[in-house]
Amino acid sequence: EEPWTQNQQKLLELALQQYPRGSSDRWDKIARCVPSKSKEDCIARYKLLVE
Rank of each mutant, 00 (worst) to 15 (best):
Gln17Ser: 13
Val50Tyr: 09
Glu40Tyr: 06
Lys47Gly: 10
Glu40Asp: 11
Ile43Cys: 09
Pro3Thr: 15
Arg26Met: 03
Pro35Ile: 07
Gln9Lys: 09
Val34Ala: 00
Leu49Ile: 14
Leu11Gln: 15
Cys33Ser: 13
Lys39Ala: 09
Trp27Ile: 04
Asp28Ala: 09
Ile30Lys: 01
Trp4Tyr: 02
Asp28Val: 09
Trp4Gly: 02
Gln8Arg: 04
Lys29Pro: 06
Ser24Arg: 12
Leu49Lys: 14
Ser36Phe: 14
Ile43Tyr: 15
Leu49Glu: 11
Thr5Tyr: 05
Asp41Met: 08
Arg26His: 06
Asp25Met: 09
Pro35Leu: 05
Tyr46Glu: 14
Lys37Met: 08
Ala44His: 03
Arg26Ile: 01
Glu1Tyr: 06
Ala15Tyr: 01
Gln17Ala: 10
Asp25His: 15
Lys47Gln: 05
Ala15Gly: 07
Arg21Lys: 12
Asp41Glu: 12
Leu49Asn: 13
Arg32Asn: 14
Pro3Trp: 07
Val34Pro: 01
Ile30Trp: 01
Cys42Gln: 02
Tyr19Cys: 02
Asp28Asn: 12
Ala31Pro: 02
Gly22Val: 05
Trp27Asp: 02
Cys33Phe: 14
Ser38Ile: 05
Gln17Cys: 07
Arg45Thr: 02
Asn7Gly: 12
Gly22Asn: 15
Ala15Met: 03
Lys29Val: 03
Cys33Trp: 13
Arg45Ser: 01
Ala44Pro: 03
Lys39Ser: 11
Lys47Tyr: 07
Glu1Lys: 15
Ser23Tyr: 11
Gln9Val: 14
Leu48Phe: 14
Leu48Thr: 15
Glu1Cys: 01
Pro35Trp: 05
Lys10His: 12
Cys42Arg: 00
Leu12Trp: 07
Glu51Arg: 13
Lys10Phe: 09
Asn7Gln: 12
Gln18Ala: 10
Ala44Tyr: 05
Asp28Thr: 14
Glu51Ala: 08
Lys39Leu: 05
Lys39Tyr: 01
Glu2Ile: 14
Gln8Cys: 07
Asp41Gln: 13
Leu48Val: 12
Lys29Trp: 05
Gly22Leu: 07
Gln18Ile: 04
Ser36Arg: 12
Leu12His: 01
Pro20Met: 04
Lys47Pro: 04
Leu12Arg: 00
Ile43Gln: 13
Asn7Tyr: 10
Gly22Trp: 07
Arg32His: 12
Glu1Val: 04
Tyr19His: 07
Tyr19Leu: 04
Lys47Leu: 08
Lys10Ile: 05
Ser38His: 05
Asn7Val: 08
Pro3Gly: 15
Ser24Ala: 13
Asp28Ile: 10
Leu49Tyr: 12
Glu40Gln: 09
Trp4Asp: 03
Gln18Cys: 05
Asp41Leu: 04
Asp25Lys: 04
Tyr46Lys: 09
Gln8Leu: 03
Gln18His: 06
Gln6Ile: 12
Ala31Gln: 11
Ile43Arg: 15
Ile43Val: 13
Arg26Gln: 08
Glu13Val: 04
Ser36Lys: 07
Tyr46Ser: 14
Leu12Asn: 04
Arg32Pro: 05
Cys33Asp: 10
Cys42Lys: 01
Cys42Met: 00
Glu40Lys: 08
Arg45Cys: 04
Gln17Thr: 12
Asp41Arg: 02
Arg45Ala: 07
Glu40Ile: 07
Arg32Lys: 14
Glu13Ala: 06
Leu48Glu: 09
Cys33Gly: 05
Trp4Asn: 02
Pro3Tyr: 15
Leu48Asp: 06
Ala31Cys: 06
Ala31Leu: 01
Glu51Ser: 04
Ala44Arg: 12
Lys37Gly: 00
Ile43Lys: 15
Leu11Pro: 03
Cys42Asp: 01
Lys37Val: 03
Ala31Asp: 00
Ser38Val: 03
Leu16Thr: 08
Ser23Arg: 06
Leu16Phe: 02
Asp28Lys: 15
Gln9Leu: 13
Val34Asn: 01
Tyr46Gln: 14
Ile30Phe: 00
Ala31Phe: 01
Ile30Tyr: 01
Ile30Glu: 04
Lys37Leu: 01
Thr5Met: 04
Asp25Arg: 08
Lys39Arg: 11
Gln9Glu: 15
Lys37Ala: 04
Leu49Phe: 14
Glu13Trp: 08
Tyr46Phe: 10
Trp27Arg: 02
Ala31Asn: 04
Arg26Thr: 09
Thr5Asp: 14
Cys33Ile: 07
Glu1Leu: 15
Ser38Trp: 00
Gln6Thr: 13
Pro35Asn: 06
Ala44Leu: 11
Ala44Met: 11
Asp28Trp: 04
Lys37Ile: 00
Trp4Lys: 03
Lys39Met: 05
Leu12Phe: 05
Pro20Cys: 04
Ser24His: 10
Ile43Phe: 09
Thr5Cys: 05
Glu1Gly: 09
Ala44Glu: 12
Tyr19Ser: 01
Trp4Gln: 00
Arg26Phe: 06
Trp4Phe: 05
Trp4Ile: 02
Glu40Leu: 09
Arg21Gln: 15
Leu14Tyr: 14
Leu14Phe: 10
Gln9Ile: 15
Asp28Glu: 15
Trp27Cys: 01
Val50Glu: 14
Glu13Thr: 06
Gln8Pro: 01
Lys10Trp: 08
Glu40Val: 08
Ile30Thr: 02
Asp28Cys: 06
Arg45Asn: 13
Ser23Leu: 13
Ala15Arg: 00
Ser23Ile: 06
Leu48Gly: 13
Ala15Phe: 02
Trp27Lys: 02
Lys47Met: 14
Tyr46Asp: 13
Arg21Val: 14
Asp28Pro: 05
Leu49Thr: 14
Ala44Asp: 05
Leu16Val: 11
Arg26Asp: 05
Ser38Gly: 08
Asn7Lys: 14
Glu2Leu: 01
Trp4Thr: 01
Glu13Arg: 07
Glu40Thr: 08
Arg45Val: 02
Arg32Asp: 11
Ser38Pro: 01
Ser36Leu: 12
Asp41Gly: 06
Ser38Cys: 06
Lys47Arg: 08
Pro35Ser: 07
Gln6Asp: 14
Tyr19Phe: 12
Ile30Cys: 02
Cys33Glu: 13
Lys39Asp: 02
Leu11Asn: 15
Gln9Ser: 10
Leu12Tyr: 00
Leu11Asp: 07
Gln9Pro: 00
Glu2Val: 11
Val34Met: 02
Lys39Val: 10
Lys39Thr: 09
Gln8His: 06
Ala44Asn: 10
Gln6Gly: 10
Ala44Cys: 11
Ala15Asn: 00
Cys42Ile: 06
Asp25Phe: 04
Gln18Asp: 13
Val34Lys: 03
Lys37Pro: 00
Arg21Ser: 12
Asp41Lys: 05
Pro20Arg: 06
Leu11His: 14
Gly22Asp: 12
Gln6His: 11
Asp28Gly: 10
Gln9Trp: 03
Ala31Thr: 04
Cys33His: 09
Glu13Gly: 05
Asp41Ala: 13
Gln8Trp: 00
Gln17Val: 09
Gln18Glu: 10
Cys33Tyr: 08
Pro3Val: 09
Cys33Val: 11
Ile30Leu: 03
Lys39Pro: 15
Lys29Ile: 03
Arg32Gln: 14
Thr5Trp: 00
Lys47His: 14
Glu1Thr: 03
Ser23Lys: 06
Cys42Ala: 02
Pro3Asp: 15
Lys39Phe: 00
Gln17Asp: 10
Gln17Met: 11
Asp25Ile: 06
Leu48Ala: 14
Leu16Ile: 14
Lys47Ser: 08
Gly22Ser: 10
Arg21Ile: 08
